[in-house]
Design a protein around this nucleic acid. Structure first.
Lengths: 351, 351
DNA sequence: CTGAAAGCGCTTACAG
DNA sequence: CTGAAAGCGCTTACAG
């Protein structure tokens, strides 16, 4: 690759002058500057990123930290989509992205060590199996600018898909369709799960509904088999629910399969809802009733906030940004008629 | 971060000695070496990657090049899974991965410029909308070690999911189930599509089957709506097929929806097959008959070959590696009984 | 076995 | 307005 020295020879000026011209310093002659820029374009000159980083301590590299466990990381569609838009925004601002890993060759590094080894300008933490992991905390507590997705730390900017609001909209919609016996198979415990649960109960309460404890069970995100099994148990209850909310769209497939295997129809006999709004949910029939999380905006917003924090630390506040979700009505949640409402089995539950 | 100088002061030796000890040079005293290694571990010292790269021209960074178009890149499950395993292998060998992009900040770069700007040790090209793109060719023809997934260039190592073999197995299985009127909605033209088509026709011929031209139509990968529309046309034919092969599993959803909307059952009335073996295909009912592409091995193998090429260029041959696929029988392709075989409508087609 | 010195390709005070 | 010089943190011939 051509170096700054090649360019300086070609232009007949010193490397200092070239460097300043390229970096927009004011104290350079108009014509000199024009010449240098022209020559740089001609030979396709770009400053070597390593040399520049060594001097300036700025790499224009952002580290992305995520769990690589089964069903996590790149193999998780929700995260992969967020990463795609994160990358697109960052790239437009001149930042490349890197994955933060534990081991580099034969030596193990902590996440923070990896960050200083690579001199990342900032870090995005997302899709972690365990946000309380000690090594992750280290990164959050370091000097490196950090943005976190779907979790709140005091010390970092958080981008959150509005889970309280999402669950509120979904639950309210189901209730508005006449359902009173609503079951919720939720995902493994986390702050996301917690907020959804709180919101679920809250909306039930606001509508004067109570449900039996057996209607709320713990499943596993993105595990349709588990959700299928749990669905069977719900169907076997003496008074089964009229609607089942799955942990996510993918798991909803397991719920639907089990229901159909029992000879029941969706949504005529029993309704199903998901969460996420992944594409496959909309290719199913009936189309899944779900909450769409705006992965594009989550990724874009995370990148934007992080780059602001990197470039203008003093005017960027450490805040929590909640992103809107939207209800996708689909047709897997049916309308419960008043006849059904009068069934004794239901009455015994409602009050 | 601690520098090599800090470490040399702590150990009371020169930086040269520290550097050599850390890099496994032989001409260092046993005890000196032990001391240095111990101290390095204590303070969590890692050489600054930029400084090292500047001197050695080795970054331990691999660039990954892919299209970011709709339905491509990270938003494509097939590619995201390959990338995940590629990253896991590379990381274990000490390489981090970076995405290769067009624009860096306000200035546009060609892909090759981005590679030299970042000094990538090697490049993996995958999942491109257009492998004949001029900028991609530039990278392939450069001095940088390159591995390509699912496409063959003369100048680079190729890792290929065996599409000929996959399509062979799938088609043969369908024929073995008694089908003779098999339709194929294939994806947009590419070498992958071409090979699958060639193989499809070849197996038909080997089995003494011919199909009408209308049975082979061009769809779009991962576009279930288009596949749904094309399915409708196939169903409307005077002599419709008994089995439809979709471009991929995701598109198969569209095929299935259209079939069901027509009041037909799968597989009793008509059979469906996909391609890819993505997880959702196995969560459907009936389970989709499909070919599983081994994304784990593709990613791992690509990383392995690329790193070999980087580290031992003289003993690594530029070859094409074909990876095995496997048939997932599922239950969306049914058995066609002999009664059905004797139907006049079929006979008129077969010979 | 150890260390002084040069140099990788840049940027940036500083002097002129 | 321009350029010489120092230095970012390393590695690696080379000398001793």
């Amino acid at each position: 690759m051509a170096t700054i020295k090649d360019l300086s020879l070609k232009c007949g000026v010193s490397v200092s002058t070239v460097s300043k011209a390229l970096n927009g310093y004011k104290d350079i002659g108009e014509e000199t500057k024009r010449n240098i820029l022209k020559a740089a374009n001609e030979i396709g000159y770009f400053p070597d990123s390593n040399a520049r980083a060594l001097k300036t301590k700025k790499t224009y590299n952002i580290g992305v930290l995520f769990s690589t466990m089964f069903n996590h990381g790149l193999r998780n569609e929700y995260f992969a989509h967020i990463l795609a838009s994160f990358n697109e925004y960052a790239t437009g601002k001149g930042y490349d992205i890197n994955f933060i890993e534990h081991n580099v060759g034969d030596r193990k590094m902590t996440f923070l060590e990896h960050c200083s080894y690579r001199n990342f300008d900032g870090v995005c933490i997302a899709c972690c199996a365990d946000f309380f992991d000690n090594e992750i905390q280290q990164v959050v507590n370091s000097k490196i600018p950090v943005v976190v997705i779907d979790h709140i730390y005091n010390e970092a900017i958080s981008i959150l898909s509005d889970n309280m609001e999402g669950m509120r909209q979904l639950t309210q919609y189901i209730i508005d369709q006449g359902h009173k016996r609503i079951a919720y198979i939720h995902g493994t415990n986390s702050s996301v799960t917690h907020n959804r649960l709180v919101s679920f109960y809250q909306v039930l309460r606001e509508n004067g509904l109570t449900i039996p404890n057996e209607y709320v069970v713990e499943g596993i995100y993105r595990d349709s088999d588990t959700s299928g099994l749990l669905t069977q148990r719900l169907l076997d209850l003496q008074v089964p629910p009229t609607c089942i909310i799955a942990p996510d769209d993918y798991s909803a497939l397991g719920v639907m399969n089990t229901i159909r295997r029992s000879g029941l129809r969706i949504p005529e006999d029993i309704s199903v809802a998901g969460y996420d709004g992944i594409s496959v949910a909309q290719a199913l029939e009936p189309k899944l009733t779900t909450i769409r999380q705006d992965t594009d905006r989550i990724g874009t917003e995370a990148a934007k906030q992080l780059i602001n924090l990197i470039e203008r630390p003093m005017v960027t506040s450490i805040s929590n940004v909640y992103l809107k979700v939207s209800l996708m009505k689909g047709s897997s949640v049916g309308y419960v008629t008043s006849t059904e409402l009068n069934r004794p089995s239901r009455q015994s539950i409602v009050d």
